[in-house]
Design a protein around this nucleic acid. Structure first.
Length: 379
DNA sequence: GAAGCGTGGAG
DNA sequence: TCTCCAAGCTT
């Protein structure tokens, strides 16, 4: 059934001027492409790193991260030899941290299995951790010049308009339709520029709201433009709203000036990153008591939340944390109790030494507050 | 197929 | 303030 729908679209390409479209698009890209750090050369490792960083992340955000990352890890070998902890540190603030873990593991696989050379077949590239259909196509086309589709959000938006396709681009199956289309219309003599040009067009001209059709090099080929419905495309169903959690954060300081931080589990949200101990609570009335119980059960520390020093909220893509941060006091020595596995994940650190540990943004702000004594803070 | 997974910018 | 999002992948 899906195959049938794909065929319907592919037939409608019949009267599409593929050659002229390719020429207009490539000519524009050659003139107008932005100068970006990952376009200095076609080194497959450099392309790879850029594509991972650019997943769901804006170009302007990525640039400084990419520069720092490539300076520290210039080759796949350099990255493979590094500690994961340091890789996370270079990823700090960029989000989707599993990208860093997967990239690190995948580079090590490239070292062992391919002698340090990024593989150049669809099967081998796609098999690398963190490399999905889009990234595989991007590496193969941009680094190796192979005619593979690299369908991202830009490409789906641009093609939805140019070919007037009304399939829901939020559905996974729709990406496959666009891959099939790309295989038909891709410029075989320059797949690298063709794929990049479609994305560049989506980023600069064929933008989500108010597309700049006056400046579009392929407006003459655009069916949505001809029908006057370019602003209605692409069709994209809405994501459901995320939940809100109330969270209480504990700052526990020892007389030697160190504070307790805790490493998150190695799966799930913010995996492997460091943070201050915190809990989700349901009732404000029992919040401090619940935090105390948690601190004793997990870390074996009899601590009591005293002064609230910070209140802030953090919004994830699918979740929101409303956070209240408390300075805690505790009785006597830190006892040798608590959960053994968790104790391996705790550390006592001075505020000025915390920047060696990768923190998520929400807790980085608390660490900053600690360093500055919460002066002029958010309370 | 749907849900989980971050963050900062733009309109 | 709020919604949508930006060169997606994994489970």
């Amino acid at each position: 059934m899906v195959k049938k729908q794909h065929d319907r679209h592919l037939e409608s390409i019949g009267d599409f001027a593929i050659d002229a479209f390719q020429n207009d698009l490539l000519y524009w890209f050659e003139r107008e492409q932005r100068i970006l750090p990952w376009r200095k050369n076609r080194d497959a490792y450099r392309v790879w790193v850029s594509e991972i960083m650019l997943q769901q992340t804006r170009v302007d955000t990525v640039i400084p991260y990419y520069e720092r990352f490539m300076e520290r890890f210039p080759t796949a070998g350099d990255l493979a030899e590094a500690e994961l902890e340091e890789v996370y540190k270079y990823w700090e603030g960029l989000g989707y941290y599993s990208r860093a873990r997967n990239l690190h593991a995948a580079v090590q696989e490239v070292q062992e299995k391919y002698g340090g050379d990024v593989p150049n077949t669809p099967e081998d590239v796609h098999a690398l951790k963190g490399v999905g259909p889009y990234t595989a196509g991007a590496i193969l086309s941009i680094a190796y010049g192979l005619p593979e589709p690299a369908v991202d959000g830009n490409v789906m938006r641009v093609l939805s308009r140019i070919l007037l396709i009304e399939d829901d681009i939020a559905k996974p199956s729709t990406r496959k339709l666009f891959e099939a289309i790309i295989r038909v219309i891709i410029a075989e003599h320059n797949p690298s520029f063709f794929n990049q040009a479609l994305m560049e067009l989506g980023a600069l001209i064929c933008i989500p709201r108010s597309p700049r059709c006056e400046s579009c090099p392929v407006a003459v080929h655009c069916r949505a433009r001809a029908a006057g419905i370019q602003k209605e495309l692409p069709i994209k169903s809405k994501a459901k709203k995320g939940r809100i959690e109330q969270r209480a954060v504990a700052l526990i300081g020892r007389p030697d000036g160190t504070w307790l931080i805790h490493r998150r589990p190695d799966t799930g949200l913010l995996a492997d990153l460091w943070e201050f101990p915190h809990i989700e609570y349901a009732n404000e009335v029992h919040m401090r008591e619940e935090l105390s119980v948690y601190l004793y059960k997990i870390f074996g520390i009899r601590a009591i939340p005293r002064e609230r020093v910070m209140e802030h909220s953090h919004i994830f893509s699918h979740l929101q944390w409303n956070m209240q941060t408390y300075i805690c006091t505790y009785e006597g020595e830190v006892p040798d109790a608590g959960v053994e596995e968790e104790k391996q994940r705790m550390k006592w650190v001075r505020p000025e030494e915390m920047d060696v540990y990768p923190f998520p943004v929400s807790h980085k702000k608390i660490a900053d507050g600690l360093r500055e004594g919460f002066q002029g803070s958010l309370l």
